[in-house]
């Protein structure tokens, strides 16, 4: 069981990649990119976790108490906020594609390009 979170991270990555490749709609594809990204969250938090350790906030616990890795948490928190704006950017691209070509299906878009 001790490697289960890593397996979850790998599974999320692969399942998201499958979604991107088999997608018939750009909005669906963008959500799948989000799924791939969430695999990095699971992986980072799994690496930093220590059994029985506290959160790295030393307000009501003395310094020196075993705490989980704060570095991976710091990476995660900026990652989450940045991901949302990147998804917004991708969705704006999808809106432009739909306006100009009248479709969101990636396969039909290729036909239009010739």
């Amino acid at each position: 069981m001790s490697y289960l979170p890593y397996a979850v991270a790998a599974w999320l990555f692969l399942v998201g990649l499958y979604g991107v490749i088999s997608s018939r709609n750009l909005v669906h594809l963008i959500i799948c990119v989000g799924v791939i990204q969430s695999s990095s969250y699971v992986l980072l938090l799994a690496i930093g976790y220590r059994t029985g350790a506290a959160a790295p906030i030393f307000v009501d616990i003395p310094v020196g108490t075993p705490a989980v890795d704060p570095v991976v948490q710091a990476l995660m928190l900026t990652d989450v906020v940045v991901e949302v704006t990147v998804v917004a950017l991708l969705l704006a691209l999808a809106i432009q594609v739909h306006k100009r070509h009248g479709t969101l299906n990636p396969d039909e878009l290729r036909k239009l390009k010739g």
Binding site: P56, I57, F58, V59, P70, V71, A74
Partner: peptide, 8 residues
């Protein structure tokens, strides 16, 4: 006191 903020 918040080590995460200290890193960031």
């Amino acid at each position: 006191t918040d080590a995460v903020t200290a890193v960031n």
